[in-house]
Structure formats: C-alpha cells, structure tokens
C-alpha cells in the first residue's frame, strides 16, 4: 500500500516545482519505529501533524512524561485520539522509547 501511494506524492510535488521554478522541495524521510504492540497506532496518530523526530528526540522519557506529552497533544493541539487509543500509545512509547534502567 505504502509502495503504491508514494510515487503519486512525488509526481504531485514535481509538477508544482515545474510550474513555479523555485519552490523549495523539502526531503521526505521515512523513519522506522521499533517493533512492538501499538506501533501501528503511533504511526497512524502521531505522524499526522509532525514527523516522528519529536518522539525519537524525547526517547528516554518515563511513563508519566509520555502520558503528559500525549495529553498535551490532545488537549492543547487537538489531536483526535480517544482515551483508549491514547493509553495504548503511552504503553508503546514508555516500553519502546521509555526510561532506560541503568
């Protein structure tokens, strides 16, 4: 599915570039998140507004902080995520990108 949709995205950006001449073409990166239960939910909900760079850069945060961040997305930035999904996302993030025990 992903392989199929990507080329259309490119055709679209290139045709705009051809018309205006000097449009800035921003690169697209596809980051691979760690495997784990809930990964699809994070891919679906947490890349709507920004890249997963924000998540990777905050890796090492404890569960309370991840809860805080996800609630911040819902309450302040209006992320359309229901309570149940949010809990699953927090579980995934605190397990895969959580505090590393030393």
């Amino acid at each position: 599915m992903r392989i199929l949709t990507l080329p259309f995205l490119f055709i679209f950006t290139f045709s705009i570039a051809a018309e205006t001449g000097n449009k800035l073409n921003l690169p697209i990166y596809q980051y691979k998140l760690k495997d784990g239960r809930g990964r699809e939910l994070v891919e679906m909900y947490c890349q709507m507004c920004h890249s997963v760079g924000y998540i990777l850069n905050n890796s090492g945060a404890d569960k309370r902080t991840w809860e805080h961040i996800v609630n911040h997305m819902i309450n302040d930035f209006k992320a359309p995520i229901d309570k149940e999904t949010a809990e699953k996302i927090v579980d995934y993030l605190s397990k895969e990108y959580g505090k590393v025990e030393k």
């Binding site: 800035l24 921003l26 690169p27 980051y31 691979k32 920004h50 890249s51 850069n57």
Partner: peptide, 22 residues
C-alpha cells in the same frame, strides 16, 4: 534512516544536525 540526530544537507542548508524534517 532509523534514528536522529544526523548531519544533513537540507535545501538551503548544509551540514546541520537534524531533529525533524516535518
């Protein structure tokens, strides 16, 4: 790409540390 940060040549930019592209 699996992780940040990473030195990158973005349009208009050279050799910067990347935290997010979008």
């Amino acid at each position: 790409v699996y992780n940040y940060p990473l030195r990158t040549n973005f349009p208009e930019k050279k050799n910067l540390i990347l935290y997010s592209e979008r």
